[in-house]
C-alpha cells in the first residue's frame, strides 16, 4: 500500500493492457488483410456479408440521413441571419452531410447492427467449436470468416454513404422548400454550386475505412470470445463500443489528413 506508487502502478497496468490489446488487434487485422491479398476469396461468404451489411442496413441509414438533413436545415435557419439564408443553408447541409455526417452517422448505425451481429455469430461459432471444426475441414477460419467480411465492410459502407449523401441533401431540400418557403430551383442550384467532388470522395474514403473498422472489430471480438453465452454477450458489447470509438477517432485523423493541408 503506497499512496504514490499504487495509482502509478494502476496507470502502468492500464497502459500495458491497452498496448497489448492494440497490438493483438493490429496483428489480427494484418492477418485478415493478408488473406484478402492472397487468393482465393470465398465469394459466397463475401456476397452474403455484403448483402447483410449494405442491403439490410439501407432502411436504418436512409432514415438517419433524411432526418439529419432536415434537422440541419432547420437548425441553420434559426442560427444564420435571414439574409442570404437560402445559399447558406444549402451550403451547410451539403458540406456537413458529404464531409462528416453522412459517413459518420451511417458508420455508427452500421456498427450497431453489423458489429454486434458479427461478434455474436463468430463468438457463438467459437464457443461451440465451429471455428475449430473449420480448420479440421481444410479451411482456414481467418480466410473463410474474416477476410470476406473485411472486404464487404470496405465495399458496403461507401455504397451506403452515397445513399446517405443523397437522402441527407434531400432532407434539407424538403425542409427548406416545404417549411421555410425557399425556391426549389435556387436551393438546388446553390447545392450543386457548393458540392465539391473532393468532399464527396473524402467522405467515401472515410466510409471505406469505417466499414473496415466495423467488420474488423466484430470479427476480432467474436473470434476471441470465451466462456459461453456470457462471453459472447461481452464480445458483442465491446465490438460495438470499440468500433464506435475508433470510428470517431479515425474520423478526426482522416479529416486532419484531408482538409488541413
Amino acid at each position: 500500500m503506497n499512496p504514490f506508487l499504487d495509482p502509478l502502478a494502476a496507470i502502468g497496468r492500464g497502459v500495458i493492457g491497452a498496448a497489448r490489446a492494440t497490438g493483438s488487434l493490429a496483428l489480427f487485422a494484418l492477418e485478415g488483410v493478408s488473406h484478402l491479398l492472397r487468393p482465393p476469396l470465398h465469394w459466397r461468404m463475401f456476397v452474403q456479408a455484403l448483402v447483410e451489411m449494405a442491403y439490410f442496413s439501407l432502411p436504418v441509414v436512409a432514415l438517419t440521413a433524411i432526418f439529419t438533413g432536415m434537422v440541419l436545415a432547420l437548425q441553420s435557419y434559426t442560427g444564420f441571419s435571414r439574409f442570404n439564408a437560402e445559399s447558406a443553408i444549402a451550403n451547410v447541409v451539403v458540406i456537413s452531410i458529404t464531409r462528416e455526417l453522412g459517413p459518420v452517422l451511417a458508420a455508427l448505425m452500421v456498427a450497431g447492427r453489423i458489429g454486434a451481429a458479427t461478434a455474436a455469430e463468430l463468438g457463438t461459432m467459437r464457443v461451440t467449436d465451429q471455428i475449430d471444426a473449420l480448420s479440421t475441414l481444410s479451411t482456414n477460419p481467418m480466410k473463410y470468416l474474416v477476410a470476406p467480411r473485411l472486404l464487404a465492410g470496405m465495399v458496403a459502407l461507401p455504397l451506403l454513404v452515397v445513399v446517405a449523401d443523397i437522402l441527407g441533401v434531400l432532407g434539407g431540400f424538403v425542409v427548406s422548400v416545404m417549411k421555410l418557403g425557399f425556391s426549389a430551383d435556387a436551393y438546388l442550384r446553390h447545392t450543386f454550386d457548393f458540392m465539391h467532388a473532393s468532399d464527396v470522395i473524402s467522405g467515401l474514403v472515410k466510409a471505406a475505412v469505417f466499414g473496415f473498422i466495423i467488420a474488423l472489430l466484430g470479427c476480432y471480438q467474436g473470434y476471441r470470445s470465451r466462456g459461453g453465452a456470457q462471453g459472447v454477450g461481452a464480445a458483442t458489447t465491446s465490438a460495438v463500443v470499440t468500433a464506435s470509438i475508433l470510428i470517431l477517432a479515425f474520423d478526426y485523423v482522416l479529416t486532419e489528413l484531408f482538409f488541413t493541408r
Binding site: 461451440t128 467449436d129 465451429q130 471444426a133
Partner: peptide, 8 residues
Amino acid sequence: FQNGALFD
C-alpha cells in the same frame, strides 16, 4: 467434436 460443432 464432442458437441458436434455443426455449422448452423
